[in-house]
Simulated scan of single mutants.
Amino acid sequence: MSEEKIVTYKGFNTDLTCRDYQFEIGKTYEHDGDVEACSSGFHACENPLDCFSYYPPAESRYAETISTGKISRHDDDTKIASATITIKAELSMPEFVQRAIDWIWNRVDKSLEQQIMTGNRSAASNTGDYSAASNTGDYSAASNTGYRSAASNTGNRSAASNTGDYSAASNTGNRSAASNTGDHSAASNTGNRSAAEVSGPHSVAAAFGIESKARASIDGAIVLCYRDDNGDLIHIRASRVGDNGIKADVWYVLDENGEFAEAE
């Protein structure tokens, strides 16, 4: 047990509750009693991507937090329990993905100049045009900002993000996130309970896993499917924003009847 001040990240239900405890952005909370990871205290993760294990992108919100006081660490990942937690700021998915990339990149050997990595908790990043960033390890992140570039990973709880025009962000891991802000770009994932998001015009967000969701901005489009509990494909549907009642910057899922529904 130690006394520390740590930048952490926390997932919530869509109403900003966690295990029936109501939180608010900007507030500080103190726990009176023992602090033990997975048992008591306020929980958060040092690695943003570890939040996906407990709060998958398709049904959650995320925030940057500050954990202070007594700290107890979890053995299996970077989850910690603390005596005090401050909910500093809510993060959009692109912001959350960037925090994950920064966290991982700060822990890799820069001398290797890695652009493609396959190890767990790895990162791939580049900023050049016509470039690609790719990894296949779990807990990994792929990011680039160049035009006509691609970011891709296949590990669970991973994130793929880019901001260049004509670019693509793609992942296949469960509980993962694909996000980009470039025009004419695509964000796609196939993992269950994942999220695909685009904010540039004429871009497409596609999510194909069980209980996955997608959203797009004005002049964009979404593609969603509905699968049964066995993963069998029952419905698939696409729509431009503005058609079929689809609103800009709103998360959608496809229901059992093949109809678009706003994600709760």
Results as ranks from 00 to 15, higher is better:
Val7His: 11
Phe12Pro: 14
Thr14Ser: 14
Thr17Asn: 03
Tyr21Cys: 02
Tyr21Met: 06
Phe23Pro: 10
Lys27Trp: 07
Lys27Cys: 11
Ala37Lys: 00
Ser40Leu: 07
Asp50Trp: 07
Cys51Gln: 06
Pro56Asn: 00
Pro56Ser: 03
Ala58Leu: 00
Glu59Pro: 00
Ser60Ile: 14
Tyr62Val: 08
Ser67Gln: 15
Gly69Thr: 02
Lys70Ile: 15
Ile71Thr: 06
Arg73Pro: 02
His74Glu: 06
Thr78Trp: 07
Ala81Ser: 15
Ala81Pro: 09
Ala83Glu: 14
Ala89Pro: 01
Leu91Gly: 13
Ser92Trp: 09
Asp109Met: 04
Leu112Lys: 15
Met117Ala: 14
Gly119Gln: 03
Arg121Gln: 00
Ala124Thr: 10
Gly128Pro: 04
Ala133Leu: 08
Thr136Tyr: 01
Asn144Met: 03
Gly146Ala: 08
Ser149Asp: 07
Ala150Ser: 11
Gly155Phe: 11
Asn156Lys: 06
Arg157Leu: 10
Tyr166Thr: 09
Thr172Pro: 08
Asn180Leu: 02
Gly182Asn: 05
His184Asn: 14
Ser185Arg: 02
Ala186Tyr: 04
Gly191Asn: 01
Ala195Trp: 06
Ala195Thr: 07
Gly200Val: 03
Ile210Glu: 13
Arg215Asn: 13
Ser217Gln: 08
Asp219Glu: 15
Tyr226Ile: 02
Arg227Cys: 04
Asn230Gly: 13
Gly231Thr: 11
His235Pro: 01
Arg240Ala: 12
Gly242Met: 06
Val250Gly: 01
Glu264Tyr: 11
Glu264Val: 10
